[in-house]
Amino acid sequence: MNQRQKEEYLREYSILKSEGKPFFPYAVAKDAAMACIVMAIIITLSILFGAELGPKVNPTSTTYVPRPDWYFFFLFELLRITKPPSLTGLATVGIPTLGMILLFLLPFFDRSPERRPERRPVAMFTLVFVVGAMAFLTYDGATIGTPTALEIKTPKAVIAQGAAAVAKFEAGRLGVAQSGCEACHDIAGNGNPGPGPELTHIGARVPEEAIARTLDNPIAPMPSFRHLPNAKFEAIIYFLSQLK
């Protein structure tokens, strides 16, 4: 904006302002109503969902997969979808940093006097693009889940068989989580829905020996897992055969 445009804006604004109403009580009343709504939303959320406290910190466990609060999903998702490790730093730090710098400088590079949204196509296009990208990454991060977390209840049948069975089931659960099966299989809502079939009820569909045969000698693109240590391999088979 040049000097003339600045003065024009200030003149126009002072007229608009003098036509307006005093902040108190008009704007204050609206703000107070909004504050009541915000309070009501916070209280409702707190009553409905409360605060959860997970298991205590255990720095030696490596199977626990971190999950941020939803507002950082987009960052974790960036981390997840940038495959070459040399680029992750660029994606997770570079992109947000660049975004922040652009936000800081916005008033200094967008200097046109035009304020009406429909006459600022570049600004509006950027807005739609950024909001869309963030929403997409957040949604993706929320639904896909982390590829090595496997949360599943121990079936009653396994508990009934005693402590040894439960331990084997648990070992199988960790084995499946660590072997990356969830990159291709959905297991009770964990992992990706494809390209492999859902394994939530695999034990009911396929006999134990057939599962073992699949893991030993699968049809492409599924890789073979016959190189796994024996105990782990068996635990995985047992775990899958109990998913009914």
């Binding site: 406290l53 997970g54 298991p55 205590k56 910190v57 255990n58 720095p59 466990s61 626990y64 997969v65 971190p66 999950r67 941020p68 609060d69 507002y71 950082f72 960052l75 974790f76 981390l79 992750t88 730093g89 997770t92 730090v93 570079g94 940093t97």
Partner: peptide, 28 residues
């Protein structure tokens, strides 16, 4: 939001923060 997430010090808090500080570490 980020610093508050660690304070309950449960598994979720701990591991998310480990990852977050690691991401910070890769910064230029």
């Amino acid at each position: 939001a980020l610093t508050g997430y660690l304070l309950p010090f449960d598994q979720r808090a701990y591991w998310a923060t480990v990852v977050a500080t690691n991401i910070t570490g890769t910064g230029p």
